[in-house]
Design a protein around this nucleic acid. Structure first.
Length: 220
DNA sequence: ATCCCGAGGG
DNA sequence: CCCTCTGGAT
């Protein structure tokens, strides 16, 4: 199957399933999303959503967070991964927002990456979700699912490689949605350890499934 | 033992 | 490129 056809088939399927996918992180403004995405590194969205309500109540704006102390932030995020690093990153991030960006979340990926705790993946999430920019954030789900579905080359080794190939092949206006489609498929169907191929509706286009269920070469 | 919407530093 | 950070679920 040709690459273009594979992309079109899969995008059509996902669009039919969920025309307007959304983040499962809970937030009400760009600042809250930025905090939630920083917290989500190597942690499930569900667990992040358990700590953010108290966090947002205590620190409703970047100024509140910027003026806080490590010992005020740490206890509130203690139950998620890397609370030590993340507490420091959150405060530093808020201070930079206040001091350099007038307490607003900047739009550009390059600028976003200057914020403490914000790497390429987080910057791409903000750019695409908040500003609807054609930026593809490649997290563990997008990385795994893209390779299994044959959207990118099987030899791709880094998230950046996968990102470039996806951006090149997905229509610009679909990129923010495709990001969520791939994540949701990865989270609920195409699981890392034991993917639910039995209930998956797109195995016909899946390289991983092909490999696991090879068609016997009868008459070739 | 492996995974979860990674980032920073060596 | 590698390593460390580091909690909870499966």
């Amino acid at each position: 199957m040709q690459k273009k056809e594979r992309y079109q088939s899969l995008l059509n399927y996902f669009r039919a399933q969920q025309p307007e996918p959304e983040t499962e992180l809970h937030y009400t403004n760009p600042y809250e999303l930025l905090v939630a995405v920083i917290l989500s590194a190597q942690c499930t969205d569900k667990r992040v959503n358990m700590v953010t309500p108290a966090l947002f109540e205590r620190f409703p704006t970047p100024a509140h967070l910027a003026a806080s102390h490590f010992d005020e932030v740490f206890p509130l995020i203690k139950s998620i991964s890397y609370p030590n690093n993340k507490a420091k990153h959150l405060i530093g991030m808020a201070q930079m927002l206040v001091n350099e960006f007038n307490s607003e979340v900047p739009a550009g990926v390059e600028t976003l990456q200057k914020l403490p705790g914000v790497g390429r993946k987080t910057a791409n999430v903000i750019a695409s979700v908040v500003y609807n920019a054609p930026a593809m954030a490649v997290d563990t789900h997008v990385f795994r699912v893209s390779k299994r579905l044959g959207l990118v080359s099987q030899t791709a080794k880094t998230p950046l490689e996968v990102e470039k190939q996806l951006v090149k092949n997905i229509p610009q206006e679909d990129i923010p949605k495709a990001h969520h489609w791939l994540i949701l498929h990865g989270r609920y169907v195409c699981l890392a350890r034991s993917p639910k191929c039995g209930s998956c509706e797109i195995t016909a286009w899946c390289r991983y499934y092909e490999k696991k269920h090879p068609i016997s070469p009868k008459n070739t």
